[in-house]
Design a protein around this nucleic acid. Structure first.
Length: 218
DNA sequence: ATCCCGAGGG
DNA sequence: CCCTCTGGAT
């Protein structure tokens, strides 16, 4: 299944173009519930003013809010970023840690954000159940929303470890271009013939989950 | 109207 | 499990 998806979206990649762990981490925190295009619009100014954890820890709240306003959730994100700067200084001497256990302890950083940083800044293969992944899982009758980590591991076992980071990008592209939240473009879907939801004619993942009872992947 | 590569809190 | 936080594109 992964091969079919990967062939369909050969240009899948991380659209947050940062190799610097600090910048990638901050940009990823900002990317929640927005498009990466919008994040890329505010990051130049943000990093000019706050190039590292130390600067971010001492940042002016209102300035940060103004800069990132267009990415949405700006108060919550600003709060996270200021705390993030402080936590990085206190816990890691201003450096971004390269391990999941450390990353998820940081304020505003969950498994999703941590995996983006691990995969694209540290070269550590990561696989995470994000909204696209969860949606895809529901279409197959899997229980992503009940136990995301279990599904994460189960699907991870199907994919060569070296491809995990790329897999997450492929899934995002698939979700954005084809497997939409409410009405999926099943006619253009490369894995439609494998999808139980397509079989029962349901393009809404939540309705599909009720109609479809498939064993989780192993 | 609906959605966006989410996280924290109740 | 639920809710909230937010703006912009389609």
């Amino acid at each position: 299944m992964y091969r079919l998806l990967a062939e369909r979206y050969p240009d899948a990649h991380c659209e947050l173009d940062f190799t610097n762990p600090f910048e990638l981490l901050v940009a990823t925190v900002l990317s929640a519930q927005t498009t990466d295009v919008r994040v890329n619009l505010v990051t130049p100014e943000l990093f000019r003013r706050y190039p590292d954890a130390r600067a971010l820890a001492g940042a002016d709240r209102t300035d940060v809010e103004t800069i990132i306003a267009s990415t949405g959730f700006f108060r919550a994100k600003t709060e996270s970023l200021l705390k993030l700067g402080v936590a990085l200084m206190e816990q890691h001497d201003g450096e971004v840690p390269g391990r999941m256990v450390d990353l998820v302890k940081l304020p505003g950083v969950g498994r999703k954000t941590a995996n983006v940083v691990l995969g694209n800044a540290f070269g550590v293969p990561g696989i995470t159940v994000d909204t696209h992944f969860g949606r895809l899982a529901r279409r197959f009758g899997w229980t992503a929303e009940e136990d995301p980590v279990k599904v994460e591991h189960a699907v991870g076992a199907l994919i060569p470890r070296k491809d995990w980071t790329q897999l997450s990008h492929v899934l995002v592209f698939h979700g954005r271009r084809t497997c939409h939240a409410k009405k999926a473009a099943c006619g253009a879907c490369p894995i439609a013939r494998l999808c139980p939801s397509y079989g029962v004619g349901e393009t809404d993942p939540d309705k599909a989950a009720k109609l479809v009872r498939t064993a989780p992947p192993r």
